[in-house]
Every structure is written in structure tokens, then in C-alpha cells.
Design a protein around this nucleic acid. Structure first.
Lengths: 258, 258
DNA sequence: GCAAAAGTGTTCGGAATACACCCATGG
DNA sequence: CCATGGGTGTATTCCGAACACTTTTGC
């Protein structure tokens, strides 16, 4: 809420108002193939300014006075990525008073799983301290600024949970993909090997995939069939909703349990 | 993060810093018994000051300069409640630029399910516009200030999900309770009737309950056995953790899937 | 023809569901 | 003795887990 207890006005001194930032944990799949699958990677930016100058940190920025949190989060990665339409999900808000040495900074974390080719790095300015960005294996992160290692750890934990009951895995896949590709996404996020037969049966019976008829070319050996992800058709449900029985309320943030 | 992109300093004008508040959605069970169970209720406070003076709203307050978000959330309800140790869970952060007519206010929502007797109302000051608090049935809320109806709707949705896989239901129960009492909590939160036999079997086989030996007195008819909630014994696990296999990382916020 | 990855069927056990009757107590 | 809520057992179904061989293609 706002203002029931404290008599705070717009004239409040700046020192009493915390700074508000957003930090984005972008995950992708890539790197060397280990255990038959690529690894989970995290996008980090090298800080050009103190505090923690030269240190790696999550992409982030302060929230503008009339800017929504989602817009700020997109702005934080816009100078690194070309693709629009990345679906960012709010992670958590970190507000411990001592988490930033400059003073009180509250940060709202966002995260997403994206295709690596959606994120392109501009030519890095010269200089050892220059700001630049790179993917790092989630299992071998460099020392990080602030509490960003904790934020990333929490984001990984959420991603592991969310991938079980949301569509989040499809965000990292191209329009057409093989079942093996899809399974590798799950394996990389979950950190474990999945049974191919059980996995295929499950995703095919979910009704979320359609066979495109195309097959994967270029590889040696047997080509894989390619599938496409089909969203639940908006308004095209077979069973009509009973009158008087309101459709479950939609919350555009957080499509699953959490 | 903080400060990678914008060159913001402590001298930033107050107008550019958003206000940060916390709002708390306190749920309890009470009210008239309908469909064999009490209903879900929400604690609301009547606003004494503009905006929305005289309107009902969630208890909330602004976050102090050196105060953690959790502490602020507890402070928001401290003048209404006597019990300490309420387990508040972070819900979501609402930051749309126009959600408060006074200007930019970002609010971090918290929620909890508590026993009604933990919350005691101080004698309300006289006057129609005086600040006071009361429980309202979650299905019949008055018009609310700000976007608080949306926040409550989201909190109810989260509560429904969380009760399936967390201990949250036990927070609303006394130390000793009957299985029927526990089931009524689930039924009120889920909004549906549960099969008594299947429910009892499930909760008893979960290992989270111990029979106290006591029975419920005072009622007519057969007295119910009383159970107590047993937390997972810390360090008393039977199966030893395999060496080299790190225990899963703990995140003290969000004990379940989120 | 061989190496490599794709693709498929069956069995088993545990969990969730549906369902109906007896028990203990106070009045 | 009866009204009321407490307490229990069984059959069925569904889902997840385990497990190994055949097929297709490029080379």
C-alpha cells in the first residue's frame, strides 16, 4: 500500500528514499557439450565504475521515475541484445539494507531463458576496465559484485522448478526443434539425464507440440523429426465454460505455481 | 544490481527516487460457517488520510532507510497484532508507474496465513474517518484503495498453490488440532470440498503429524483426536548424505516451488 | 557395413480417486 | 436411542519410473 502509517510527502529528503534497481538473470544454453548436452550459461556484464569496478555483475539499471519495472528490466539488457519480446519473469525483490556499499538499494530481480543468438554483443570498447558482457557457465562463475551470486543461485533454483510446469523451456528453442533438443534443455536446467522414451512420451502426450513434417538436415546419421510449439489457442477451447462459472483469474505475471 | 548503466549518485533528487512501501495480505479463517467450514478472510485497514481517505486498504507502510523489507512488513502489522513470529512470505513487487496518485510508489507485497487470535484490534479511535482494522470475507471485499484488490487476488491465487506443497496451512492452526480442523483449512483456501478419508490418509502418511493422545473436549458427540505438527527434525535424518554430494542450497525465502 | 543417433512398448509400483459403513459420545 | 460428527478399508485408475532393441541415415 502506500501511506497509511507514515506521513510521508513528496518533499521527503532523497536520503530517506531508497534507490530502486532491476537486475536481470539471463540464462541460455551453450558452451562445450558435456555429458551429451550443452551447459547452462548466465549473461554477465563487467562493471566499468565503482563499486566493484572491473568485477562481473548481472546486467541491471536503476528504475526511471515513470518507467515500469518490466520496462526497466528490458532496458537493462537492450544494449546487449537485439531481440525484442523476451519474456522476463519477476524473480524476487532483494532489499537487505547493506547489500550495496553505496547505500540503500533495493533491487527487483528478473530472469529469463533465451536463445543465445537473441543476444549479440556490441564491439567492446578498448581498455581493461571497459564495460563488456559475456556468457559464463552457471557452474563456473567468476567472483561477482554485490549479492549477485546469491541472486543467480536463487534464479537457477526457480528455473529448475518452473521448467517442470511452465512453457519456459520453449523460449530457448528455435521455431522448429527436435525432441532431443528439447530434452537437452530440460537436462541442462535440471542438471540430470532424463530417460528418452519417457520424456518423449510425456511431451508428445501433453498436446503442446505439433509435428511439422520437416526433418533435421545436415547431420550425419538418422535425421530427427522437427516439432513446433503450439500455444493454447485463445478462445478455441473445445469444452465451453459453464455460464456463471467465471474463468480462473489471470495473472499475467507468474503463469504457474510459484 | 546497482549502477552499471546509469551514473546515479546519492545526490539524486528526491523526485527521481521512487517511494518504496510494503503491503501485507493477512489471511485467516473465520466468519460464519458456510458449506460446513469457515471462510477465508482478509485483514483490511481503513485509511485515515488521503488519498483514498476512508477507503479500505491493505496494511502497509513505507520502508525505512535502514530497514529490511521483512522488518517493514512486520512493522506494518505490529500495531494491529500482538503475536510475534508471523511467517511472512514475499508475494510480488508491484511497480506500475500510475498505481499511486501521489506519484511513483513501488510496493513489495507480503502475505501470510495466521490464526485470528494472533491479531487483536486496539480500541478504535472515535470518528468516522479514524484508522481502524477489521477482517473481511475474501469473497465479499469492500471497494479498495490503489490496486489492492488485484494484490489480494494474486495473493489468494498464490496461497491456493502454496498450500499444496508447503507447511503454510499449519500456521493457521493451534498447537493441537483435529484432522477435521486441518481439512477445513484446506477446503477454505482451495474453495472446494475434500474427501475426508483420502485427506486423512494423505496427511497422516506424510509424517508431518504426531498424535498427541489428547482428544477434543466440549463438543457433543464423538471427540476428535488431536494432532500436533512436527517439523522436520534438523539433522536427524536417517539416511546420511553421501559425501561430496552437497545438500541442496537453501533459500530461506520461498520454501517450495514458488 | 558400420557408426551414430532416432525412435518405440511393456512392466511395475505408488499415488490419487471414488465410494459406504461402523464407532463413540452427549443429550 | 438417536443425532452428530469421527474414524476407517478396498477397488480402480492413472502416472511416473525402469528398462533394450530396431530403424534410419551418412560415410
Amino acid at each position: 500500500m502506500a501511506g497509511a502509517a507514515m506521513a510521508e510527502t513528496a518533499a521527503t529528503q532523497a536520503a530517506e528514499r531508497p534507490l530502486v534497481s532491476v537486475d536481470v538473470v539471463l540464462f541460455t544454453l551453450g558452451g562445450p557439450v558435456r555429458q551429451g548436452r550443452p551447459g547452462l550459461q548466465v549473461l554477465l556484464a563487467r562493471r566499468a565504475r565503482p563499486p566493484f569496478a572491473g568485477c562481473w555483475a548481472l546486467p541491471g539499471c536503476f528504475v526511471g521515475p515513470t518507467e515500469s519495472l518490466e520496462v526497466a528490466a528490458h532496458r537493462a539488457i537492450r544494449h546487449l541484445t537485439t531481440a525484442r519480446g523476451i519474456y522476463l519473469e519477476q524473480l524476487y525483490t532483494f532489499g537487505e539494507p547493506d547489500r550495496d556499499p553505496r547505500g540503500r538499494v533495493i533491487t527487483i530481480g528478473y530472469y529469463a531463458l533465451v536463445r543465445a543468438d537473441q543476444v549479440q554483443f556490441p564491439a567492446a570498447p578498448a581498455g581493461a576496465e571497459a564495460e563488456c558482457a559475456a556468457w559464463f557457465p552457471a557452474d563456473a562463475l567468476p567472483p561477482l559484485a554485490f549479492d549477485h551470486d546469491y541472486i543467480i543461485g536463487y534464479a537457477r533454483w526457480r528455473l529448475r522448478n518452473k521448467i517442470e510446469y511452465t512453457d519456459i523451456a520453449f523460449q530457448v528453442l528455435p521455431d522448429r526443434f527436435s525432441l532431443t533438443h528439447l530434452r537437452q534443455v530440460y537436462e541442462a536446467v535440471l542438471g540430470e539425464t532424463l530417460d528418452k522414451r519417457n520424456f518423449n512420451r510425456k511431451v508428445l502426450s501433453s498436446g503442446l507440440l505439433v509435428e511439422t513434417g520437416a526433418v533435421q538436415g545436415g547431420q550425419a546419421h538418422r535425421p530427427a523429426r522437427l516439432y513446433a510449439f503450439v500455444r493454447r489457442q485463445p478462445g478455441g477451447t473445445i469444452a465451453p465454460v459453464a455460464p456463471g462459472q467465471a474463468a480462473p483469474r489471470q495473472h499475467d505475471h507468474d503463469a504457474g505455481k510459484d
